[in-house]
Design a protein around this nucleic acid. Structure first.
Lengths: 227, 227
DNA sequence: TTCCCATGCTGACTTTGAGTCATTTTTTGA
DNA sequence: TCAAAAAATGACTCAAAGTCAGCATGGGAA
């Protein structure tokens, strides 16, 4: 009986259509202008149907966030397959993050929404929350792995705890990437427009600064000597 | 005729009461639960009065953001008066930022709200936006000054452009401070809860990493030799 | 003291948009 | 072919943002 399978697929397809409609609205008008009636009409379904698939507006956005965090986690795990020194993997992860945000500002926006949820919003009882957390955790684990690889191959200074260093890199790169997002999407954000500072060179310096700090830079290559 | 002056002060006092009421609500329930009727009743005025002082909900939050950004700018300029090497001023600015967010999460929240405004929200025509931008610009200038002082006194490597370095430090410390905010205010944020990583040590390592990267650390103390 | 006007204040009302549900349409399997 | 189940609909309810016609107050002129 392949009927139920086809039905299942059809359901997924519709859900995807609704998410895509919502993404477009966010891209065009911003998250705060997202309106359920408009999403419904753009997805060519009734409002009732929309609520059949997503129990409220929060879950609709979390649906986007799930896609976003999954996509990025895939990106991150792809980076890890490359045969490169750990330090370069770390740099590539940062670069992927930046590209991701530039290519999908609406995804980054939905992830910020996720970040700022409070328990007050029907939070604990949502499957989406759990899946988003999982995906983010996976990306984070990629960062930890890259650092561990680097410590193993001697390209990264092993004075630090790998997980702690990962948190540090996660936080700082989120900050830098957020600058990029705001420069691109928030016209009133003036920190960089005023002066003629390019994000390219800021990011380059970020890599140089952080990279310099965590790399072994020829001082103590014990691991390299071993191999 | 001191009457109009007293009236003016009275108006300011009421405005401050309304802002305080709104801050309390944000602190207790979060920004997304902020509700104009509740603010009005807590401030012991009618809804109509509230709208007499703030033309909409967005401006009310921007009013808080104005206070917040002003407070922080004052904090930052206080740091600059200290008679210390530039590098230590930079570290103190970072530390102040972290303390600020810990002590006033609702202020940080309102600044995030400001950051994420789109032009769609009656944006260009708001006096608040301009004042917030000014205050933030002032804080940023403090960071630039601290860096310039450090380059002058030889405690900071002058390979970088001061403004570009300031953007870099601004972005990264915003990211780190954001981690602190989330850990404190968003129960679903699991990046650090899972592992037993303390924010203290992450921040310490942040200072060590960045500080190490920008400090002259005895390699090229040309300016120090001069004096 | 009394009245008048300006300014400030009020809360009932309008509007908008999230979320619901009784009803209709479509699909499925007998 | 048809009845029961599943899916879809959009008019409705309800909460909260935002408005406005009328009320209160207080300071100055008669």
């Amino acid at each position: 009986m392949g009927t139920s399978e086809r039905k299942e697929r059809e359901k997924e397809r519709k859900k995807a259509m609704m998410l895509e409609a919502a993404e477009k609205v966010i891209l065009e008008k911003g998250l705060d202008q997202l309106n359920m009636d408009e999403v419904a009409s753009r997805a060519e379904v009734s409002k009732g149907s929309l609520y059949l698939y997503f129990k409220n507006k929060t879950e609709l956005v979390l649906g986007i966030c799930e896609k976003a965090s999954k996509l990025f986690a895939e990106e991150a795990s792809k980076v890890l397959t490359k045969n490169l020194p750990g330090i370069e993997l770390v740099v590539m992860l940062g670069q992927s993050f930046l590209n991701f945000v530039r290519e999908h500002p609406e995804y980054f926006r939905s992830m910020k929404f996720f970040d700022n949820l409070k328990e007050s919003e029907a939070l604990a009882d949502s499957e989406y929350i759990v899946r988003c957390q999982d995906n983010i955790q996976n990306s984070f684990t990629c960062m930890v792995r890259a650092i561990q690889i680097g410590m193993q191959d001697g390209s990264i200074n092993d004075d630090y705890d790998p997980r702690e260093l990962a948190v540090l890199l996660w936080g700082t790169s989120d900050g830098i990437v957020n600058l990029a997002y705001m420069q691109q999407n928030c016209p009133h954000y003036e920190l960089m427009q005023d002066h003629q500072i390019s994000l390219e060179s800021v990011f380059e310096n970020y890599i140089k600064l952080i990279g310099g700090g965590i790399a072994t830079d020829g001082k103590k290559n014990k691991k390299i000597n071993d191999s």
